[in-house]
Structures are given as C-alpha cells and as structure tokens.
Design a binder for these strands. Structure first.
Length: 461
DNA sequence: GCATGATCATGC
DNA sequence: GCATGATCATGC
C-alpha cells in the first residue's frame, strides 16, 4: 500500500531537522562518498524523506505536488543574512514551453509549491557541518504572483520572437531565465530562429530569495509595497507603472514637491525621498518590489548646460577583498549584472531644479566587459603593487595613481568615505607612504557617461 | 568650468 | 559607528 504524504506532513518532517547538521541527518552515508552538486538535496531525499532520487518534470513529492529545494543562506559582514545564491528551478524547454500559458507551464507544474529548506553556509566550516536553519512551505504571495507571471510572459515572448539566445536575467524582476549548463557551449535549438541558444533554467533571483530568507527564516516584518493593488499589474508592467506615476510630476520644482509632500530635510538624498513620496512609500529603496528585484534608485542633477552635476558613486570596495577576486567573479561585475537602476533626472533651469525625466537603466554587457573591466583590472593591479599614492597637491590633498575621469570614458576611481582618515586596510604596503591603509575608494560612473546615456535615450525615443 | 580629493546628513 | 547616496570645495 502506498502511503500518501500531505503538505502538512512534509513541512513537519522538514522542520524536525531544524538546527541539525547534514552529518546528523545522513544515515545512508552519502556524505562519505564525497561532495557532488546537489549533495544536500540527496541527503535529505534519502535519509529524511526516504525516497528515490529522480529528475522528472513532476514535483518531487507527487501526491502533495510539492517540490523540494535545499538552499544556502549566508551571513553578511554587517550581521544580516542573505540568500547565498539564486534558486535554480527546472530547465526551460524552448521548443515546447512557448505553447503554454502560465498555469499550464512547466514552471508552474513543477514549482507551484516549494518545500524550501534553508541551511547556513559557513566558509570556515566543512560542508557536512552546515546547519539547517529552518524549512517552510512556500506558495507564492498574492502580491508577487502578477510580477512572476509578467516575468514568465517576458521570457516566453522572447522565445516567440526568436530571441532565446538573447535572454538575460536583466529582462525580468523575480523569476529569471538563468544560464544552466557546464559552459557557454551548452546550447539548445529554439523554435523561431536557427541560432542556438544557451541552455537556461527558471530561477528565482537572489534578491527575491534574500527577501524570503529575511521574512520567513529571520522573522523580519513585511516590506512596504509600491503596488498596493495587485490588479494594477494585469494591464501594465511594474516598470511602466512606476514611470507613469513619476511622469505625473515632471516639470514640478523640488521646492513645490517638498511643499506638496511635506518633506523637509537637508539630506543629500532629498530628491530620492521625494520620488519615494510620489510612489506612495517612505523609502523606495526599502520597498518590497525594489528589494526583491534588486532595483536601486539614483537621482541625477543636470545643469542648464546639459552637464551632469556629479559623477555617480557606488559602495566603497575593500582593498584586501578586491585583490583576491577575479574579474569574472568580482563584486563590481556582479553588481552590474544583477542590478537595475531607476534613474530620476532633475534639471536646473531658471535658478530652480525641476523633475525632468525618469527611466530604468542597466549596464550594457559590452561596456561592462570592456571599459569597466579594464578599469577594474588597472585598479586591482595598482593595489597589488602598493602603487596608490602619487603626490600631495597644493591644497594638501593626496592625488592617487587610480584612473580619474579625465582619462576614462565610462567610469573612474575616487575616494569615498567619511573623510581622508576613513580608511580600509591594504593587502600590501603602500610603496611611497609605507602605510598599510588608505582612504576608502569606490568606482564612479563618469558624469560624461551619464550624460551620454541620457542623450542616447532621447535619440531612441 | 572641470577634475578630483574630501566631506556631509541620515538611517540602521 | 559606519555605510550610503550625494554633494561640496577649489586649484588649475
């Protein structure tokens, strides 16, 4: 007789190992056979749930229609927790998937209910000793579903347009088509083009997974939402909705907006605060949608001449970390590959600053892999050689060897800290100064490049 | 008026 | 106490 396991039972079984390590659970000695991809899933399937390992288009637990996923959580330097990576789901069959609507898709059939088991990834520990943090039955929140459906449509529409080879994680918000294969040479045929496309799988982006971790594993309260009514997204995308809300205020002065929304602050991000109010939230950067989709807001001031007032800063890098990175797995490259920005332009005219434009932007791959890459390499090389300080100018400022905006087209390196005494340690001695620390620095997008982005956008429109 | 080092106000 | 987003200051 076959025993039918229900969702409720599965969650209880999963929760019974909270706080245990994989070696505690592994009674079939799978861990002793060495680490392989998916080993944690295999241990739990065999030793906790007692079923045979399979790879079928059906969910792992057929009767309950639940798919088991074991996924790592990491601890950040500031003590918070994030998902260590995206959650990869089933492979997309380009040849057939385009025939289905969302609820008939392979994505929905296999993943409509997920049993998520989170473990803590700890780099200093051996993998057998990783601990299960918690387990939950994940069924999509009603507010997330319209966005996930729109993401699905976006992926399908690219396949229908014969563009499966151009699919990119940047196309979508929560659900992405991520590369899945041993290399770029893992390609498959697509139905509406002769060009072979990289094999891809559905996946939840790491930003989406991080919010699940924070809410369901760490117990953090729900984020405020920009979309107050899920039906808004039945007729438009999230991006279009956000831009249409902002466009209602184009031409308004900062003074008028401060008055209208009763915002009074000397903070340098006052313009971002105003955009938050326009979208009906306290802090757009902390909104549910921006966090889950990894969208960041940047406000930009354009002078009457058209020049952009300031270059654009990003978080400071740590000298000791960046020298241990390769470009392929660098924080900088990862940031540009996984972040989308909402640029909001404020233009100065007639002595007043007005809201003038808003659009979403991602770093083009070809720029990332040329100009940005070479700047990163130049910077890392100089840190490795301890060749940072150049000379002190007549104002007592320390001029560096890092590439400035005068010698680059897209991005440059400049200080970014509280003051010049706000430093990070150096991996090697600074050759001229003899110190083991230097003022914090970060990568900046050149204001001239930002101007170019805005011009190109106007040309296209 | 630009380029670049230095710094500020805020929030967590 | 520090990260962050954004801006300030001034020699050239």
């Amino acid at each position: 007789m076959r025993i039918i396991i229900r969702k409720f039972d599965l969650v209880n079984i999963a929760k019974s190992v909270t706080g245990k390590s994989f070696s505690d659970i592994d009674n079939k000695n799978r861990l002793s056979k060495g680490k392989t991809k998916g080993i944690f899933g295999h241990v739990l399937e065999e030793s906790l749930f007692n079923y045979d390992i399979n790879s079928s288009s059906e969910p792992d637990f057929k009767d309950a229609q639940v798919e088991l996923k074991v996924t790592p959580v990491k601890r950040n330097k500031n003590g918070s927790y994030s998902s260590k990576e995206r959650l990869v789901l089933n492979i997309i069959n380009f040849m057939s998937e385009h025939q289905y609507s969302f609820y008939d898709s392979s994505f929905w059939k296999k993943n409509k209910s997920l049993l998520l088991m989170f473990y803590l990834f700890e780099p200093e520990k051996s993998y057998e000793d990783y601990i299960i943090l918690n387990s939950i039955l994940y069924e999509y929140p009603i507010d997330d579903l319209p966005i996930i459906k729109n993401d699905y449509e976006t992926i399908i529409n690219r396949i229908k347009a014969g563009e499966a080879h151009l699919l990119s994680g940047k196309d979508t918000m929560y659900l992405e088509a991520c590369p899945k294969g041993t290399s770029k040479t893992s390609v498959r045929e697509q139905p509406f083009s002769n060009i072979k496309a990289m094999q891809r799988a559905y996946a939840f982006k790491s930003g989406y997974m991080t919010q699940i971790v924070r809410k369901y594993v760490m117990g953090k309260e729900t984020n405020e939402k920009i979309i107050k009514d899920a039906s808004i997204l039945e007729s438009q995308t999230f991006d279009d909705y956000v831009l249409s809300r902002i466009k209602n205020y184009i031409g308004d002065s900062v003074e008028a907006l401060k008055e209208k929304f009763q915002v009074d602050s000397k903070a340098k991000n006052i313009n971002a605060q105003l955009v938050s109010r326009i979208l009906g939230v306290n802090n757009i950067a902390k909104s549910d949608e921006f966090l889950k989709a990894n969208i960041k807001i940047k406000t930009i001031q354009q002078k009457e001449s058209g020049t952009i007032k300031e270059s654009m800063s990003f978080p400071a890098f740590e000298y000791t970390s960046i020298v241990n990175e390769t470009w392929e797995e660098s924080d900088l490259r990862d940031m540009f590959l996984t972040t989308k920005w909402l640029f909001v332009i404020f233009e100065k005219s007639h002595e007043k600053v007005h809201l003038s434009d808003a659009f979403f932007w991602t770093m083009p791959d070809e720029i990332l892999e040329s100009e940005v890459k070479s700047l990163w390499q130049d910077t890392v090389e100089k840190i490795k050689q301890g060749k940072i300080y150049h000379h002190t100018n007549s104002r007592g400022q320390r001029i560096t060897h890092f590439l400035g905006s005068a010698s680059t087209k897209v991005a440059h390196v400049r200080p970014h800290g509280l003051n010049k005494n706000d430093t990070y340690p150096l991996p090697v001695k600074e050759q001229t100064l003899g110190t083991y620390e230097y003022t914090k620095s970060c990568f900046w997008l050149n204001n001239s490049y930002i101007k170019e982005i805005i011009l190109n956008r106007k040309k296209r429109a």
